[in-house]
Design a protein around this nucleic acid. Structure first.
Length: 465
DNA sequence: AAAAAAG
């Protein structure tokens, strides 16, 4: 892999990255940086956990370096679908911005407007925002986007969804015509065409192929239980293993309830969903991100608010307690594990009546996984939660037996997993053909596909649209 | 179809 310096990243920024142990660029970064640094509009697609944030953070900072934004007139803008993601992006941008003498602030709802307003009045170069509060501040005249030179849409396909589209469109329309626009997502499908057509010009599309991405192996399992009662038992067991795990539910209410049930059952869990105040959201996510050896909570129960972008180190298991409604949600939720070279397991808990929907879902997501019938404490489950599952007999010595949580990029609790992995996914590395052809997004939209944007290019080759 | 994003 080429170094950041080779790709034209300014030395001061490359130095910051090197200080963080990052010298070589991941494929999505390698593919996009030359174009994004040159100021071109682009669409970037790379798997979850493949380094997209840095792919846009670098050009964002690099292209704004050397000038100072006027008060209330930021020159860089990043839009994200959730507050947690905005916070996380800002944290990635911050050290780079600092090295370049640029100021960053976040703008989103659920927290006091005051500090955001003050920062904007003082002057910031880069705003990382969720659409709602940003529009609010625009209306109040606190911020103007007419000097924005670089705009990034993270999770761009989601930002083009019905709920977000009107606001996102108004925001983009408030930025200057000639500005640079970067659209990124792991599932960059034709849904973004409405934004791309209106707001991108002469854009290049980079879609990094599967096989070359340095992402760890993601193992997909589908465990079928007989009824709701067995499902409860299984979910309990899946929550009981040694590693960090995220459990996804379909609704806010279920997330809250499940976290409570687990905690009551002696498995400390925190929830994350939109019914929580922003304080609680931040507190719970922080508790989940904290070192388990130092009081961190190993189980997060979340709605799809946590499906996209949120990165916590060393999540080794994702459980779809309720199967998601669509395949993109499956991919994004699952992508909370197996990030940046680590391994991870994804389990879908299946009720018999969901068989058809889930098969459909997996097919669209291009995941091959056999349905495994399980009952309580069946071998598949014991294997998943680690042979010496704490739950079997409440742990004799509860405290401090795992000092560090940095694990080698292998299975969950150090012990090699026995048993063959059924449902081996297609995401192993190396062998054979890449499964995605360029631009063949997980679910090719049935109609509306007449655009020849992506067709028979070799992997990772840019095209112009 | 649910959740998110303004309060």
């Amino acid at each position: 892999m080429p170094s950041f310096l080779d790709l034209g990243v300014p030395a001061p920024l490359a130095a910051v990255l090197a200080g963080d142990g990052k010298t070589e660029a991941f494929p999505i970064q390698q593919g996009t940086l030359p174009d994004s640094l040159a100021g071109r509009d682009l669409l970037g697609r790379g798997r979850t956990g493949s380094g997209k944030t840095l792919a846009f953070a670098i050009p964002l900072v690099a292209r704004l370096t050397g000038a100072t934004s006027r008060p209330q007139h930021p020159r860089g803008l990043v839009l994200a679908p959730t507050r947690e993601l905005a916070t996380q992006i800002a944290a990635t941008v911050a050290p780079l911005a600092k090295a370049a003498g640029l100021r960053v602030t976040t703008v989103f709802g659920g927290v006091s407007q005051r500090p955001q307003e003050e920062a904007l009045r003082r002057g910031v170069d880069i705003v990382v925002a969720c659409p709602g509060r940003l529009e609010d501040l625009m209306k109040q005249g606190v911020v103007r986007l007419d000097e924005v030179r670089v705009t990034v849409l993270d999770e761009a396909d989601h930002m083009a969804d019905l709920g977000f589209l009107p606001g996102v469109t108004r925001i983009l329309a408030a930025t200057p015509q000639g500005g640079q626009r970067l659209l990124f997502s792991a599932t960059l499908d034709n849904g973004i065409d409405v934004l791309a057509r209106r707001f991108l010009s002469n854009a290049v599309s980079h879609e990094v192929d599967e096989a070359s991405v340095p992402v760890g192996e993601m193992t997909h399992r589908v465990l079928e239980v007989a009824d709701a009662e067995s499902k409860k038992t299984l979910v309990n067991e899946l929550a009981s293993g040694a590693g960090r795990r995220i459990l996804f539910t379909r609704t806010k209410h279920q997330a809250k309830k499940l976290a409570k049930v687990l905690t009551t059952a002696g498995i400390p869990a925190v929830d994350l969903h939109g019914n929580l105040g922003q304080n609680a959201r931040e507190r719970n996510l922080a508790a989940f991100s904290a070192d388990p050896a130092e009081g961190g909570v190993r189980v997060l129960v979340a709605t799809d608010v946590a499906a996209r972008g949120v990165h916590v180190d060393d999540v080794d298991l994702v459980v779809h307690v309720d199967p998601p409604a669509e395949h993109k949600a499956y991919l994004h939720r699952s992508g909370r594990t197996a990030r940046a070279g680590a391994a991870g397991t994804v389990v879908t808990v299946l009720l018999p009546e969901q068989r058809r929907d889930v098969k459909d879902l997996l097919r669209k997501a291009q995941i091959t996984a056999a349905i495994e019938p399980v009952s309580a404490a069946s071998p598949a489950v014991v294997e998943l939660i680690g042979a010496k599952a704490a739950y079997v007999k409440p742990a004799p010595k509860p405290a401090a037996q795992q000092p560090a949580r940095k694990k080698p990029a292998s299975g969950a609790s150090g012990s090699p997993r026995q048993g063959q992995r059924q449902g081996q996914p297609r995401q192993g590395q190396g062998q054979g053909q890449p499964r995605h052809t360029t631009g063949d997004v997980a679910a090719p939209a049935p109609a509306a596909r007449r655009r020849r944007r992506r067709s028979s290019r070799p992997q990772g080759t840019p095209t112009t649209r």
